[in-house]
Design a protein around this nucleic acid. Sequence first.
RNA 1: GCCCCCUUCGUCUAGCGGCUAGGACGUGGGAUUCUCAUUCCCAAAACAGGGGUUCGAUUCCCCUAGGGGGUACCA
Length: 517
Amino acid sequence: MNRPPAGLYNPHSTMGHTVRVRYAPSPTGMQHIGGVRTALFNYFFARSQGGTFILRVEDTDQTRFDPRALQDIYDTFEWLGITADESPAAGGDAGPYVQSERLDLYRSYADRLVQAGRAYWDYTSARRDHDAESNSGEAGGYNYEGRDLTPERVAEYRAAGVKPVLRLLVPADGKTSFDDLVLGTIKRKNKDLPADPILLKSDGFPTYHLANVIDDHLMGITHVLRAQEWVPSTPLHLLIYEAFEWEPPRFAHLPMVMGKDGSKLSKRHGATSLIEFRRQGYLPEAITNYISMLGWSYDDSREFFTRQELEDLFSVEKINKAPAVFDYKKLDWYNGQYIRRCDDDRLVELLLPYVQAAGWAAGSGGDGAGAEDRERLAALLPLIKERLKLLADVSDLLRFVYEDVNSWSLDDLIPKKATAGEALAWLDAATAVLEDRPLPEAGDDAAEEAYTEALREAAESAGTKLGNLMMPLRVAITGSRVSPPLVGSIRELGMDEARRRIAGARAVLAAAAEKNA
RNA sequence: GCCCCCUUCGUCUAGCGGCUAGGACGUGGGAUUCUCAUUCCCAAAACAGGGGUUCGAUUCCCCUAGGGGGUACCA
């Protein structure tokens, strides 16, 4: 046995059979729902088993590599609060954890496959454009011609500067099967496998198939939890394990996440990358909770789980087989629930960036805002907390507080089935109460109730109901027929500004009443 | 085309031979309410179809249909 290369993880050097799982994203795009689901399940599985969670970066496609995508992986993990025990950043005994830094490793292990007669260098597959190939109608199209090249032919190709690819020698007969932890036994005939798949590309980089097998082995991975789209190539991976004479890990293939129309979740279904959800104002705990329920459940009724609870309660036995449709509506519901449960101080901090983006507070991203900005928002919070579905909703809800209202729609000012003259009278009646009574202090429910009672009495005196008194006032103050509770809103806006707006709205009503008279 | 996988309300799901097939989102209705929202109550809504196995199938097996995935020098 060869001496293990540097970086070989020796499972016997630590605990015996502890679970070791990994999330192995490719830094080619922003982290999306599907990937994060896989990351979460691996992480929860590791934690629930007292095992180790590893982050490995699979950057073997040089052409698609994107440094922003790499950063996004770390950002997303941090945002969700999931930490890898071993990763490029955290290090670990089985590193390096970036595949482009393991090229020598793949090369040397590939040589072992050649020596064992399980793989061969193919010089006949001149690089072809994949798209052109698909259009030809003959996908793949490899005909094994590189299998038995004479030394002379090889010399010719080499002389011509041809860079070979390494191909796995797939046996023509037999079948390969495995017991999936989620799907049960899966069999596939070897002849149905792709014809001698490529292990090393002509640029010297490994394909996913080779790299993932070598790394999973060297890193001591015990369980592979990955998306079901990998099921068809798992027998291929098993063949590679067998060629190396390695014991393969256990597999658990996770159900796919689909869009509303039943096809794989993609852009056209709506937001898919975590960064988008984050920007719109979804809370990490809502995302975590909802995503965890895609293809997994705990029992027949429980639906709220903290991250800690998922770390304790998660189990592969409860993973579903069938694909799950991503329901944006339900995510929204979860988010609203979590916002309402959110601690007020934290919610202010979460909301601040949106208030800043609207230009209503100094700084950006929560930084730069002063104590006054925070106090103002904190005072407004009770008015909007149960009305927020997304953090971003804050700007629409509070625009009337932070921005001037200078125009009033006559239609909006006049309650249903009422005239401009009536609306004018009601607005005046409401204003009289405002001028007559001091507004209730924030949080004083009894005073608030008494205040509303005074308004109700004024309405009755004016021969109408409370709603008709409030609506013209609401529109005057907020410029809209929909607003947070009015009395509190006026208090936070201040009586001076309220008077100005009432006067403006009153002029609109008066003009209309005049005209009708 | 070939191969693999999947199938309970519109959606996420519970169910592991005998249940009035449960919960949640959404939807409809109602209550609360100054609008909106929140909260509460009620309602409609499912075992894809056909064969078996069994005293008995949502549950086990087979077939059909439908859906999804794979079939790259991408992962």
